[in-house]
Amino acid sequence: MAILETIANRQSQWSETANQLKSTIDRARWSVFALSSLGAVLAAVASQLPDNTTAPRSTAAIAGAVSLALATFFTQRLLGTDRISAWVRVRAISERLKREAYRFAAGAAPYNDPAKADALLDEEGRKIEADGEDLLPQLVRTATQGSLPRQSLQQEQYIKQRVQGHIDWFTKRAGSNQAVVVRLRRVEFALAALATLLTAVAGVAAKPVIAGVPFDIVAFTAVLTTLGGAVLAHIEASRYDFLVTTFRAAARRLEDCTNRPRPSWSDFVNECENILATENTSWIAKFTGKPEATSSP
């Protein structure tokens, strides 16, 4: 099982690297969302302040410009195509190594011949990692052993750890993503409703005076519309709806596979792994526009 130990260690590195890259991307997306929203609000406030309040107006205008500039900077440096591509490629390599390791540990084809299994896994592992040689400088050190098995699995162990484990994970992640998108859509709905209300009020009411300064309601209506657009853009960039759909679909397919009669153990394992491969390929295509090149089981 030395080769399985090696694959498990390397997969742990790829997985931890993918986690860190994804964490950076998530923080950058939320930062861009917050900075863009703040910049829009400050720009609107600055436009409403009279010329005789030079200092407050300049302060608001500068703060708004800085916020928008930082949002643009983070978008270019942390959310560029190269960053997204690197994260997706690292995660894809991690998942491919994981699939082969579970096939090997479960004794499924093509690893059902003990005399050839080690050599086959070594060859497949080298082939998978060769696709990411340019990413090796980004790999991080990790003290954790990861989730991969390091010895043979009995049938019930494979079902519990790999299949049921992923069903639970997909279900949980679908729920958490659904909760986020529901909250964000409620915020967007409230912003749109408030913008509509202010538009109606602006047609019949005088300009409100806040701290001695008359403010144009129409200007803030535009800001609310901009903020609503930023919320929708964040939802689309994070692919929340897509992830909810694919996670739930993958969980259902795994459940169906588990409940059906098994023609053979190898067929069952490979069907489960192919379901996971299909899910993996779908989100790679969604985030990059091109599918992962997967090897045949």
Rank of each mutant, 00 (worst) to 15 (best):
A174H: 07
Q154R: 15
F74Q: 01
Q157E: 15
F73T: 07
P56R: 07
W265L: 01
D113L: 13
R89F: 07
A219R: 11
S85Y: 13
R173H: 10
C272G: 07
N112I: 13
D113P: 03
A101W: 01
I84S: 01
V163E: 01
D168P: 01
F247I: 01
D118S: 13
A117W: 10
L78T: 01
A285P: 00
T245S: 12
S12R: 14
S152Y: 04
S36I: 03
A200F: 12
A86N: 09
T81K: 14
K22C: 03
A71C: 02
T59K: 08
S67R: 03
G80T: 07
S58N: 08
S94G: 10
R248H: 15
K127S: 10
A86G: 01
D256L: 14
E16T: 08
F220G: 02
Q178R: 14
A105S: 09
G229N: 11
V180K: 12
Y102I: 07
G229F: 13
R252E: 10
A109M: 04
A174I: 12
W87S: 08
A237S: 14
A200K: 14
V32D: 00
P261K: 06
S67Q: 07
A174T: 12
G80V: 12
T142Q: 10
I128C: 05
A2F: 08
L49V: 14
K98I: 02
